[in-house]
Design a protein around this nucleic acid. Sequence first.
DNA 1: ACCCAGGGTCATA
DNA 2: TATGACCATGGG
Length: 232
Amino acid sequence: MKRRLRAVYRRLHAAHGPQHWWPGDTVFEIMAGAVLTQNTAWTNVEKAIANLKRAKALSPGSIARATHRELAGWLKPSGYFNIKAKRLRAFCVWLLAQGGARRLARWSTPKLREALLSVHGIGPETADDILLYAFQRPVFVIDAYTRRLFGRLGVVRGDEPYEVLRGEIEKRLGADVPLFNEYHALIVAHAKDVCRPKPRCGHCALGSLCPSRSESWLLQIHKSADRNPRGN
DNA sequence: ACCCAGGGTCATA
DNA sequence: TATGACCATGGG
């Protein structure tokens, strides 16, 4: 099964190329983006981050000091702005209390993960985004796309609890930060560019690895594919 | 006029 | 432990 995971990775990488994740100029921008992109299109997050930059507020101190109305106003384009204002502030307050990211970088991965999860508004996926993309820890991020893709490929069932799924994938791939970084980004890229026919494989980026290739069914990993089941 | 996005929290059962 | 409601903008 480890080979299969590697094969899928190679197909995605060949089709989409390096993704250069996480987008962001600083470690803090990466962490803030991880909170703001919760159930939200990245294009909307970019607008919110641009607002923060324009207001010179893209720092833990500025955000912690800002009023709720001010902060929510900057975050408006990213949606859920009232909730995200609270979450981002809670994260910044916590970050300042810990003495900043430089200090946190010395923590062990399990301890850092547990600490992140204790912050209001930081769930498993957001914590893992931060661990992998801001702290370069070998943590495989599990999102809805990952569940559906690996589930449909038969690598896993797909309905396992988050921790179980993460543990399985990490065990099979082996701790590898650059690989985890690229893999998760490629799965998202695959979702955006939903298996459009590529010259390379004739069907979708996964080519012969797609379980439904014979029906020329494109291996979608969006929710909508759940309602039009066509693959196995 | 739908559908849904690089989720998480909280209240119920 | 496992559902369901809720949060909200913007692009297809």
